[in-house]
């Protein structure tokens, strides 16, 4: 079989998800072609082990993201099964390519094996859909769900210019508002409690949150005592949250707090008291002072590929 990977656009080099897509393609067997839409990174792509061909696309339409003109410009270069990373842009482009080719798109898969057998979480992770599909489809794969392929390849690089015109104009970039993610919508929440000692230590949580793209929450005790916004409060009288990951830092785990977060899919607790009730609901408990454990955790997260 043949697999065509559409790389996630990146100003320089390749996006980390590309090597993961290559690994998925190799798992399916057959040849693997990578299309680089605009930008650069063809050299790095050709060096990923398992890539057979790299095609760089250039043209006016790649100056900013326009899924529809991109898919039009690629349609003749695509062969076989199409893989993309399930990023927001990858999903939009993947759907457009599928419609261009008149085939199905299966989004956000977390497992892919020959056959082609796929697994994808649905209902916000409350269930898993298991699918078998023909090779004639577009698949987007959730970033970091597959081990990346190693370097060590040397694929042939070609380039192609597209004459497709872009149909939307970017007027201005709006400085990314420092708007914080709301706890009720976040996939990851890192919350602090009285164990942090002082409101100013919430900055440390903010740092980790910005690395993870997480929201920062708080227990009622610190919202009341340290005057934090009520919108941060998780628990009985605050928000009830069900993120994929909830990290409780210096929170003992009073029943009122547990009421608001116990249905999180995974719970990490950092607390120096080994008997703190939060450990009873934690999937991963770290018995340590937050001053030591949080920076260690942050470093480890930053070191992730």
């Amino acid at each position: 079989m043949t697999v065509t990977i559409i790389a996630e656009q990146q100003q320089e080099g390749t996006h980390p998800t590309l090597a993961q897509m290559v690994s998925a393609a190799k798992g399916l067997g057959g040849t693997c072609k990578v299309i680089i839409p605009g930008g650069s990174g063809e050299q790095e792509a050709s060096n990923i082990s398992g890539v057979d061909k790299v095609m760089k696309m250039t043209g006016e339409c790649f100056s900013s993201f326009d899924s529809q003109s991109w898919s039009s410009s690629m349609k003749n270069s695509i062969e076989g099964t199409v893989l993309l990373a399930a990023t927001p842009a990858g999903r939009e482009l993947g759907a457009s390519i599928a419609a261009e080719l008149g085939i199905s798109v299966i989004q956000d898969v977390t497992s892919i094996s020959p056959g082609i057998k796929l697994e994808r979480p649905v209902y916000s992770g409350k269930a898993i859909e298991n699918l078998t599909t023909s090779e004639n489809c577009v698949i987007t794969i959730r970033p970091n769900s597959i081990e990346a392929a190693e370097m060590g390849g040397s694929a042939e690089i070609t380039s192609q210019d597209s004459t497709e015109s872009i149909r939307l104009a970017v007027l201005e970039a709006i400085a990314k508002a420092s708007e914080k993610i709301d706890v009720s919508e976040a996939d990851i929440i890192i919350s602090g409690g009285r164990g942090l000692g002082d409101a100013s230590n919430f900055e440390k949580l903010e740092e980790v949150a910005s690395t993870l793209g997480a929201a920062v929450g708080a227990s009622r005790a610190v919202v009341d005592e340290w005057g934090l916004p009520h919108s941060m409060q998780v628990g009985q009288t605050g928000k009830t949250v069900t993120p994929a990951l909830y990290i409780a830092v210096g929170i003992s785990g009073a029943i009122q707090h547990l009421a608001g977060m116990r249905s999180s899919r995974y719970i990490v607790a950092i607390n120096k008291d080994p008997d703190a009730p939060i450990f009873a609901v934690a999937d991963y408990g770290i018995v340590a002072s937050w001053e030591d454990a949080l920076p260690a955790m942050h470093d480890a997260i930053k070191a992730l590929p």
Binding site: L93, G94, S96, E100, Q107, Y123
Partner: peptide
């Protein structure tokens, strides 16, 4: 919110 896919708008546009 059920399939969590995100294909419809882009596919319809195409």
């Amino acid at each position: 919110a059920d399939t969590n896919a995100g294909s419809t708008a882009s596919g319809v546009a195409k």
